[in-house]
Each structure stands twice: as C-alpha cells, then as structure tokens.
Nucleic acid binder design. Structure first.
Lengths: 346, 346
DNA sequence: TTGTAGGCGTTATCAG
DNA sequence: CTGATAACGCCTACAA
C-alpha cells in the first residue's frame, strides 16, 4: 500500500501552492481555469484525497454525523439508519451511531461528550430521546446542528421532523367505527412518551366523533414490547366485557394480542379485530397479517438528514424549507373486519 | 459554551510542559506521582479532554471502528450493532456504520476508501461481505486491523469469529430424524453464500447418519427473504409428494412457509413440521412459534470487537487467544412435532 | 523524570 | 488570481 499522497505532493507536482490546491478541493471560484484543470489532473493521477482529520483540525469539521437513540425497535432503527445513510453517503458524510439511556441522569452530558469527542458536525436524535428538552437546549447552547424526530412539533422547523401520529390514530378510529365496532380496547405505550399520548388522544378523539367512548378499564398501558402486549391482551380478553376490537400502540404489542387470542381460541378477525401501529416487518409476517398504520420512517430519516446537512453547510433557510411533517397512513390487512352481529360463541 | 480547553491550557496552569501532560493522558509510567496528581487535577478542573482529530493527525489513530455489511436482516444487524457498541463504548471507541454492495465491482475500492477517508482504526465485516477474499486481502495489504464474521474459518484466528452453522444444521437433522420424519424438504439460501452451503451440507450430513436422504427436487433455493420463502413453500407444498417437515435456511423463509401452510389449510405442526435458523425476534412472535437454531450473534459481535481492539492496541497474541468459534444451539418451540402415523386428511 | 523542537495535513489570514 | 506563513491540538524523537 502506497503512502497516501498529501496536499503538498499535489502542490509540488502541479507547480502551485498548497493554498491553491486547497481552493480547488473546496471548489473556490477564484481559481483560473487553467490552474484548476492542471491541479485536478494531478489530484486524480495521484488518487489524492484529503485527510479528514487534518481537515477537521484546521476547519473544525469532521464530515461525521451522529445518530442518538435509546433502545428503539430494531426494525425502526434499521429503517432510520438506511434512510440517513442514503443521504449521508451521497453527500460525503459518515454516520456514527450512539445508543444512550434516555432516563439516565447523565444523558445530556453523555451526548455532549459524544459530540465533542468525535467532533461531530451534527446529530440526529430519535424518540424518545428526542423528547428531552434539556438535551435539545444543551445542543442549541453548544451551537451544534441537530434534528429531532418526533410525533410532536417541539422545535423550530429546521430542528425537527414530525409524523402526525395523532391524525393517523384518528384515522384508525374512524376505520374501526365504520366497521361497526363500539366496544373497543386500547393498549397504550408508556405515557411518558409523546408518541403514546398522541396516539391515544388521536384515537379517542377519532372515536368520539362517532359517539364512541373507550371505557377507562379498557385502556391499558404496556411498554411497547411483545411481552407486555401479551400481558395487556390477557387482561383485556379475560375480562367479562370482552371488546370486539383492540388497537395497540405498536405492532409488537398487536402481535402479542394475536398470540393471546390464538391461545384463547378467539378468532381474528371474525371475533376480534386487532390493529397495530408502525407497519414494520412483523406486521406483514404475522398470521393474520396486521392492519396497522404505516409510519414513513425512511422518509423522515431522509428529510432529517437533508435538514441536518443543510444546517451544517450554513443553509438555514433551506433547512427550514425542507418539509418538517409527514403523514402516516392506514394499511388494511387481514386482522380487522366488520363487527359480527352476534358472536358465534355467545 | 466555553471554548474547549487544550493541552496547552493544562500545561500552563499545571506549570509543566505539554509533553508531560501528554504523558499523563496516555498513562506513561515515567511521570512523578506529584506531577501526575497535579496534572490530573487541572485536567478535571478544566474538564479537558483531548481532541481526537488532533490526536489522530499526530498518531494516526482515530478511535473509530467501522462496521461493513451488505443489506443484512434488520434484526441481525441490530444484534451485531448492540454487541459491538457495548464493547466499543466501554473502551473509548465509536462506531461508524457502512453499508455497501457485496456484488459490486468496486467493493474493495469502496471499503478501502471508507477506511482511509475516516481513518478508521479497524473494521468488522459481516457476512456475506466477509466472504470476499479480495477484500480481506486488500485489508491485509493495507495493514488495517479487521475481523470477519462468518460460518467458515476462512482466516487466521485473530481475523475471524465463526459460528458453526454446519454442526447446528446437523443437530436440526438429528432432531427431525428423531421425530420420525423421513420425507423432508429443505429451502436453502443463495448457494453463493458460505452460510447457505454450510447449513445445507450440515443438514444433509446429519440426516444421512439416519439413512435419510432429501430428494433433489425437495431442495429449493430461496434468497433468505420472506417472499421467496413463500414461493419455495408453495412449490414444495403443492407438489404431489408432500414432505412432513421443512427446514428453511432462516427464520424469514420459515415464516413464509408458515404463511403458505396456513393458506393451504395445512396444520403446523400436526401435519407439517417447520423449522428456521437464526432465532431472531420473528421466530418467537409468529404462530406457531418457530423451532429454530439460535445463533449467538451478540456474542460473536462481542468477541469480534474484543479481537479488533486488541489488534489495534498491538496485542496480536491476545487477539488470537480470544475465542474464534461459537456454537449455535437448537431451540424447540411449537412448529415441530413427531410425524403423524398417517395424516388425518389423506 | 521532564522539556524542546519539529511534524502530522489542512485551512485561514493577509499580502501581492 | 495566487502564495507565504501561521494556526489547529497533539505526539514523538531526542536531549537534558
């Protein structure tokens, strides 16, 4: 392996100064066409590419983006990562991933250290970490470009991309109502997360438009895992007043509901309609395939990354102009159906 | 936000030279205890932490590790990433993720550029990219530490962590045989991947110990996706000579088999046993839960990262001594059963 | 045990 | 439009 060519080699061979080479690299306009061509030729001959570290040292840029998250669903994370990387790599940035603990005392400190240790040019923050106002504030104070993904517009447009979970949940409510369901249960996510409250409120609001109200005891809080989905489903389905439909805060928990229904011999969708939220891989693999809400995760990632890079490259106006809101959509599959006029087993 | 303290600030305030501070930072032994304490105090007072870029420029280290892969299963990637990060962050390294195209002409070039652009200290390569000998050679030539994950020991111990898929598949064969299955089908992965051939051969070998041979037409190649799992299952189950058990190269395809069986009204496991490979989230969520082989993915990631960092820190012996092999294990769930003496529907 | 001097590869300043 | 020259923050021979 040859030792890497440096800017000095290029300058020497092209017969110009380092400064000029630097100008060419960075696309400065004030370079004569002849000079530029000559330098470019040498650059490609030598397969020269600038040393990022040196560049960073001198200009305090690293071409590194950070992704901060706390233990998200694997499928969600993967989606996001793909989206981010797509934009990243096209624009010459690399991605550094950084899991952290949302509820830790040292969250802010930890993230800040992460940023300055690696001299990141900016960070993208996923929920629920994105909901931490103290982190957002710290990021703002430190002057680091950042973009948050969330279900609520908690920041200026250039700093956030939101998905309207509330409206989507309302759409699910409408769909349930139109299928004739009235006895409906809801398995919520942790109430400390905005996404959970947004979805719950959206769902309730949507139902109320049809004069339907979920009984308080039919609203149970899970923590978005398959296992708690199972627990909640048991609780709901073993009760005396079994609902005809259950909406879960995410697909994982909806899969848990399916499992319990199967175990109890309750037929889905004939005797029970079930719906989830996310539309991740699981939703379409499970039997019956889940009716759910598709979150445009990848699109959010693309938007966030574009914003991010625009901010970094001093284009705040452009960053603000990138769309900051996306709309999840209803996907109807096999797990929901019109309510039975009377249940076969009652 | 204060401007970051530099080594010079520390030196000045502690009344020593940069060199001494540098020694303290890097844990050199030849520093007087008094001096060391004094310097350390200043460091913590100033919340000083060395600038990674500058450090890298001078010593050609970046404290950055790379993860190279081509479009793996989201769940697999997530597992690996968690494992790697766990070790990484404890030892002061960050992780840069880098998807690439295994079959691309420019794979080697692309990966090498990635490494030198970000001046990575080392890379961990996932299958199937890890199976590229030309990449491995290039990495070796360029003197970059690297560790490959694979199903075959294609490199020296310090450069690889392998999972014995062959033995695991043989174990599944034994299990099938002991359940009394003789008419068995196999849905393989792409034959250009070692993991696929290892599993297939292991399975066949395992069966042959019981005098069982899979008919050639009962071996079908999928590409490890749910969709091809469905296609292959259709092909197999619509045939005249339906098998009593199907082993799929991974859980995704096994899930596809379940789907088709369900559609065709074939009861699993009563009429058909189904097993997968991986034991990812899907396996336990699906109904019936899949019997499968659990790959210790996370453990592989831990081992690989440890090796990696030891190599980086010039501890090749230690790197070689870290275990280089892990054993996947059989996990029995609900999708397999003793073969029916005669099928109820025949 | 400690300090001096020089270099790592870029970018930025400020002349010309 | 171009070029010296000084940062950037740290490390490493070599000396003392």
């Amino acid at each position: 392996m040859q030792k890497q060519a440096t800017i000095n080699d290029v300058a020497r061979i092209a017969g110009v100064s380092k400064r000029t080479v630097s100008r060419v690299i960075n696309g400065s306009l004030s370079v004569g066409d002849g000079t530029r061509l000559r330098v470019e030729k040498v650059i490609s001959d030598l397969k020269y590419s600038p040393n990022t570290q040196a560049r960073g040292l001198a200009s305090s840029r690293s071409y590194l983006l950070g992704l901060i998250y706390d233990n998200p669903d694997a499928l969600y994370l993967d989606d996001v990562q793909r989206g981010v990387l797509e934009v990243c790599s096209n624009l010459g940035y690399e991605l550094v991933v950084h899991p952290c603990r949302y509820r830790s005392e040292s969250l802010v400190q930890d993230c800040l250290r992460f940023m300055q240790r690696s001299k990141l040019d900016g960070v993208i923050v996923l929920p629920p970490v994105s909901e931490s106002e103290s982190l957002a504030q710290a990021l703002k104070d430190s002057g680091s470009p950042y973009v948050r993904l969330s279900s609520v517009a908690l920041d200026e447009p250039k700093h956030i991309v939101v998905s309207d979970d509330r409206a989507a949940a309302a759409e699910m409510a409408r769909y349930f109502a139109q299928l004739g369901h009235e006895k409906i249960a809801f398995i919520s996510g942790p109430q400390r997360y905005k996404s959970s409250t947004e979805r719950m409120e959206g769902f309730q609001l949507g139902l109320s438009a049809y004069g339907i109200k979920i009984k308080p005891e039919q609203i149970i809080e899970g923590n978005n895992t398959y296992e708690t989905g199972i627990e909640c489903a048991r609780h709901i389905l073993q009760g005396t007043d079994r609902p005809t439909a259950i909406f879960a805060n995410n697909d994982q928990m909806a899969a848990g509901v399916l499992k319990v229904a199967h175990t109890m011999g309750i037929k889905v969708p004939e005797q029970l309609s079930v719906a989830g939220f996310d539309d991740n891989m699981l939703a379409s693999r499970v039997i019956p395939a889940l009716t759910t809400i598709r979150r445009p995760v990848r699109q959010m990632a693309l938007l966030a990354t574009s914003k991010m890079i625009m901010s970094i490259e001093n284009n705040d106006k452009a960053a603000s102009n990138v769309a900051a809101k996306v709309a999840p959509t209803l996907v109807v599959r096999e797990s929901t159906a019109r309510v039975a006029t009377f249940s076969p087993d009652e």
